[in-house]
Amino acid sequence: MKLISWNIDSLNAALTSDSNRAQLSRQVLETIKYENADIIAIQETKLPAKGPSKKHLEILEEQFPDYTSVWVSSQEPARKSYAGTMFLYKNELEPEVTRPFIDSPCTMDSEGRIISLEFDNFYVTNVYTPNAGSSLGRLDDRQLWDEKYADYLSKLDEEKPVIACGDFNVAHEEIDLAHPESNRRSAGFTDEERQGFTNLLDRGFTDTFRHIHGDVEGVYTWWAQRVKTSKINNSGWRIDYFLVSDRIKDKVTRSEMIDSGTRQDHTPIILEIDL
């Protein structure tokens, strides 16, 4: 089975805008289409509460005719057109779709951050983890989220093996970002967030990229848009992951990044696993 995960940073812009960035996003979508994955997980769709428009669905059907789309969007009292997650999966697949609430703090449960697929022998779940904020104003809530999310994955794992993917908004170790020394109190690399990710792995999950590639350095999934040279200089962070239940880690045959060309922000990641 082949899976792809990508924080798209606005599905609407990627599908309908004529901006240079949108054109770059569509090039990434073409690359994703070429991989012919069984399941595609998308984060930060930024769609309205009702989800994709008729136009969005028409474009998705044209571009991905062999796929079914399911989604969850931000709802009141959360912000409008914020966060949001989506799956595209091959039409012949017949998973049960859930949009769980995990008793997370403030409005996080209403922000469309988790959508899951249940198959006969495993789960696939897609997450867009909340950012702690540039001034770490949401760090306390983020720590509670990490605990609740770890509980959620562990509960799934008690029933059947789990594949968890998405934007986890944390660089786990120093080798997961280009400049750890200057980012000690930056969102995504605080001791608290890193410990939260460690705690999640300790509940019985494996970071598949590290499992396959060991301590390789300089391989990232995100480069800041606001810094024009971030990607040219490879000043990036690895904050997007495929995690699997420990008991199926040796079934993973591929876990790596997909080249997104000159487009900054997130790049897609890909997993192949023999289930």
Rank of each mutant, 00 (worst) to 15 (best):
T68V: 11
A132C: 10
P105H: 08
T125A: 15
L57V: 11
S17L: 10
N91Q: 15
L243M: 04
S235T: 14
D146N: 10
I8V: 14
S134D: 11
M1T: 06
W6P: 08
G204E: 10
L29R: 09
F119S: 06
P100W: 03
R138S: 14
N199A: 06
I270N: 08
N169L: 14
S19W: 02
A150G: 06
F205W: 02
W71S: 02
H172G: 05
T129H: 05
G196A: 05
A14L: 10
A14E: 01
L29N: 01
K160N: 09
L153F: 09
R184A: 11
G133H: 11
F189T: 08
L139H: 08
D215G: 00
I269F: 01
P268H: 10
Y241H: 11
Y220F: 13
F101H: 11
A49R: 04
N36P: 03
G196M: 00
S255W: 00
S135C: 07
S135H: 12
L271A: 08
I273N: 00
F119T: 04
N20P: 01
S134R: 14
I42K: 14
T198G: 04
E44P: 14
E256N: 15
N199E: 10
S74A: 05
E111I: 14
E256S: 14
R99Q: 10
K2H: 06
V216F: 00
D207F: 04
R238C: 02
D176S: 06
Y123R: 08
P52W: 04
V227C: 01
N131H: 13
P105M: 06
M108L: 14
E173Y: 03
R238Y: 00
N233M: 13
V70S: 06
V70Q: 13
L201R: 09
P180V: 14
D38G: 12
N233Q: 12
